[in-house]
Every structure is written in C-alpha cells, then in structure tokens.
Design a protein around this nucleic acid. Sequence first.
RNA 1: GCCCUCGUAGCUCAGUCGGAUAGAGCGACCGCCUCCUAAGCGGUAGGCCGCCGGUUCGAUUCCGGCCGAGGGCACCA
Length: 541
Amino acid sequence: MIRQHLSDALTSELLALGIAVPAVVHLEQPARREHGDWSSNIAMASAKAAGRPPRELATALVDALNARLPEYVERVELAGPGFVNFHLNPGWLHQVLIDTVNAGESQFGRSTVGAGTNVMVEFVSANPTGPLHAGHARGATYGDAVARVLEWAGYSVAREFYINDRGAQMLKLGESILARIRGEEPPEGGYFGEYITEWASSLDPEIAVSGDVEAATEHGYRCALDDQRAVLAELGVVFDVWFSERSLMDTGAIEQTLADLRERSMIEDRDGAIWLLSTQYGDDKDRVLVKSDGSFTYLLPDIAYHRDKFARGFDLLINVWGADHHGYVKRMHAAISALGHRAEQLDIRITQLVKLLKNGEEVKISKRAGNIIELRDIIDEVGADSTRLVYLLQSIDSPQTVDLGVIAEQSMDNPVFYVQMAHARLCSVAAKASAQGIERIDLAQAVLEPLVHPRELEVLRVLNNFSEVVELAARERAPHKVSSWVRELASEVHGFYHDCPILRDDVPADLQQARLWLGEAARVGLRCGLNLLGASAPESM
RNA sequence: GCCCUCGUAGCUCAGUCGGAUAGAGCGACCGCCUCCUAAGCGGUAGGCCGCCGGUUCGAUUCCGGCCGAGGGCACCA
C-alpha cells in the first residue's frame, strides 16, 4: 500500500516534469536508515531516456515532492548518484498495524494474483515399494508449502500423489517378501530393508506357502501405501488424490494418448517400435513409447497421466521431482507440447539432493544394504514442525546438508523454536494481561501515536512486507522466502518483547493498549507465516 | 562429451527488478535476569561474493569463458 502510495506520487511528479514514466517505479527499503524509509532510483533509471543527468532529474523530483508532501512523508532528500529518499513519519506503520489486525489470521497477506487459475501440484510420488526416507521429505515439505503459498496467493490448488504401481520393480517387491519368508536373501535388484521382513510377517500364510509372487506383491503394495500415507499425514501433508498408474491401463487412456499423438503427427513407427517425435519440441532425441516387443516404456503412461491432468481442467501443472530426474524435464515438456499444450503450463521443479550428517559424519545410504533413514524416524525424533522447518529453510536449488544430530538436540540451530517461542511469548503476555483484567479496547479507539520505539516500528516494517513476500514466494515457487520472513519477524518480536514492556506498572495506559495491539498484529503475522510452512503456532511452550 | 543445479564469514545458508558501507543463524569472544518465558537481548572478531573478461553511471546480482562440487544422460522405472 505504502509502495503504491509513493509510486503514485513519483509518477505524478514525473508527468508534471514531462518525463516518460517507466513501467515499474522501483522503490526499495534501504539497508541504512539514514537513506530514508523508502528510496527510488528512478532518476538514474530515467536519466538516459529524459536526456538529463540523474542528479539534476532527482533534484527536480525532490523539490517538487517537498513542495507538495504526500501523506506520511516528512521530507524527501537527494542522495548519492541520484537516489530519491523518502523519510516518513510513523503514521504509515501505524496503518500497517491496523491493516494487519483487521485482516486477521484468515486474510493477512492474502492476494488474488492467482485467482481463476486451477493448479495441480504433484509431489512425492515415491514408488510403493518401501517407506519414505529422509530424501523424500524435501519434496514432501516443499510441495506442500508451495501448495499453501499458492492458495494464499489466490490460486485454486490440488495436491496429487502419482503411484508408480506398475512395472518390474513391483514384482521385485513381492519376490523380496517371499524370499525373506523362506529365510533367503532378496533377489538381484530387490529390496533389502528391514521393513521387508516386517511386511512379510503380516502376509497371508497361504500366499507364503503357495509362493504367489503377484499376491505377495499386492500385499507389499498395500503395506507401502498405508505406510507412506500415514507418515505423510504425521508430517501434515495430505493429498487430494492418489493417482494410480495402473488405473490408466483400464480406462483406455493409453490408447487415447497414442491416438491423439498420431492424429497430431507427433509419433512415428520405426524399427517395430512407436516413437514420440520429441525433438520437434527441443528434446535431445526422439523417445520410444511402445517397444518393439509391444510393451510400453515408462514414458507413455506418464504422458497419458499428464494428458489426464489437463483433461481434468487444470491450467497449470507443477511437478516436484528429485535431482535424479532432471534429465526427463525436456521430454515431458516436449510431450505436453506434442499434445497441444503450452510448455509453460508444466512447471517442473527439481529439488537438489539432501546430504545427511549425523554429528558431523556423512550417513551413506545404500538401498541394497537397506540402511535408509526413514522419514518416520526423523519425525519421531524431532517432531513434525521441526522436520518441516529444517527442510523449508533453504532454496531447493542448492544441495542441502542436514545434520540429524544437531536438529535432534533442539538447539537454536533449529529455528522453529525461535519462531514458535516468539508466538508463544505474545500469547503469554496477552493471557497475562487478561488475567490482570487488562483487555484490549476497540482498535478504532486505540491511540497508536505512542508507538515510536525503534523496536516497535521494526516489527511493523516487517509485517508490511508480508504480502509481497507471499506473492514472490508464489511466483517463484519459493516457500523458503516465507521461512526467511517469519524468522525476521520473530527476531523483531523478540527485540520488541525485550525492550518494550507491556504489563509493567510504569507503562502509561495508552502505550500499554498500543503495545497490546502491536503484539496482536505480530502474532497474526507469525501465525500466518508458520501456517504457510505447515508448522503449528503454539500458545505456550 | 552434452544437460541441470550450486560455488557468499570457520560451519549451515539468505541476498527482491542490477544500487549506497554485503546479511542471518550456529561456532568463538565479551556483556545483560529483584523486570510480561534467558528456548531471549546487546556487542566484538570473522569477506578476493570461485577465477577472468564483457555490458552499465553502478555487478554478489545480467552475459560469455574457465575452474571446482553434486546430479543426470536406455526400446530400465
């Protein structure tokens, strides 16, 4: 709001000076307070087009603005190579408090940029052959947080899990279970984890005796699915749809997909196989869809699945894949283009790998040895909130190092406590005030002018940024920006808490009221931020 | 060889559309509880933003080339 307000002021002065207004008027909050509350580089940016030196242009702007000061503006200064710096009175921040409280937990920071867009986020999509491990957690927490952020930005969002319940790896599951029952080693390419023995113990004895691989596979499949669903629920990740690859076989979706592609002349029969002409859309080589023996490659059901997503009315598909799948990005884009969709309608996000440390030493994962670190164990050890925060702390573009030993200590290496504590403290003060018979008066009656302490104003400054953070996080599919923001808010809240007493006897009544309201605004902010990350906001700790 | 991501403080990482003296947490060191939760607050030390060019009034940011790390390049899934 304040940004628009200042931007409008700059725009009208530029027009009055007869200078072309750029598409976006850049305004930022300078790192150094002496550079003002807000600063614009517009004079430097427009200098070339206007044919005037930046400082001359800035001087004209500054003079004009000072002659007709916009609301909240105390003075405007020229600085450096041509910055126009706005120094504001705290009134604009008091307005932030009012807006935040009025928006409340259900609305604060919401935006409508995504209104009318139907988006599906497909994530995790692990094979149903074992429990989820520490690596899956990155995709799970990221995908869910992206979905939450998009919802907050106005998108209509569905979460979906694609189950690869077809193919050779499924039978290996059944074979592994049967082998364990017989007391043998699982076969080459099979599964070696302890969970196989566990699942084997609940297998119907008749199947064990008959050695029916398909039946054993089905049993393992159910165990895997139940296990994955349960652990995701513990993490707070709930899918709208679990989509089975097998279901594509029964509905004619595969044949329809081939027919569509053939009609669009996007496939070709070659050497007894059916090829997708994916090079026409930027792939490195054409890809086989139906092998010369008549069976499908993995790619064909995948294409049919994405065709189905569009058929269900989604405008935008977001896929969260692990780094080991980045090589398939081009061919999937080519495939949906071949089906007549725009490549931008499929947004594939690659999460870089997670390296696990335990007390400084790398934990080597070997599927064969079966020594995976299960997601469940991490949640049991540190809790769902910490697990989520740890993974959401940084960009998915960089490889992540997680030290299980350190987060298990619940030290300040784990910022979830820091943020939750800030929330709990605010709740605690409000509760204590209430217990002392001190209630907040109607906000409209409250006098906010006493809020001038730097600690108070910094809290409000951070709150003001939230809606922009949400929009940016949505646009860039970058929930870690919300993590950064909420930590910053928590930091300011702790500072405010430390330096600005509320319930002490010597606090004047109107200041006490204003601070109680400030606490409420900050609490709303912390709550909303934590919520976007999928973490709880406890009222006491 | 080709493709993707990364390289910023001792460690783990932020850094918006290119801005002014590059940030946080942890670790190290020094302070602060008769006071609403010390799971907190303040301070000090610590930087060739991998290297070299280019664009620009201005580059950690954009472009090109190197160097280094991780991952991927099937008629496997």
